[in-house]
């Protein structure tokens, strides 16, 4: 007996590249033992709950924005990153995007 059922193409795991990136950073840090997954889940759940108080969150950008906020707080608490440092590099990346000709790879300008 032959069947012609085929496995339907799955949806992409991540809707946006940055969703994948922040996910991977978190999993890599956890695998390196920087924090326990249960600690992560507790913090992340708390962020979702707080953000979901005034409106209903979707499972895409809302979800990963909460994820990013949780990771930023966790790293700041651990002293791994400073807020100033983050805005500094954020601005450097913005500058890099705005000054790189379309189609060329975007890189950070070398720093002293």
């Amino acid at each position: 007996m032959s069947t012609c059922v085929t496995y339907t193409a799955p949806e992409p795991a991540f809707a946006e590249p940055w969703h994948a990136q922040v996910f991977a950073i978190t999993v890599a840090l956890n695998e390196d033992g920087r924090f326990d997954w249960s600690d992560w889940v507790a913090r992340f759940s708390a962020t979702l709950k707080r953000r979901g108080l005034d409106r209903e969150l979707d499972g895409g950008d809302d979800y990963f924005n909460a994820w990013l906020e949780t990771l930023e707080h966790l790293l700041a608490e651990q002293g791994a990153t400073a807020q100033e440092e983050i805005s500094d590099f954020r601005n450097a990346w913005e500058e890099a995007y705005l000054t790189t000709p379309h189609g060329e790879p975007v890189r950070l300008a070398p720093r002293d």
């Binding site: 990136q21 791994a80 590099f89 954020r90 000054t99």
Partner: peptide, 22 residues
């Protein structure tokens, strides 16, 4: 329309910053 590379959304810039620092 795009003389420069397309600027990614705000959270993407913050994620890039985190990745660079780490």
């Amino acid at each position: 329309d795009h003389p420069h590379a397309l600027l990614p959304p705000e959270p993407a810039l913050r994620v890039k910053a985190l990745e660079t620092i780490l």
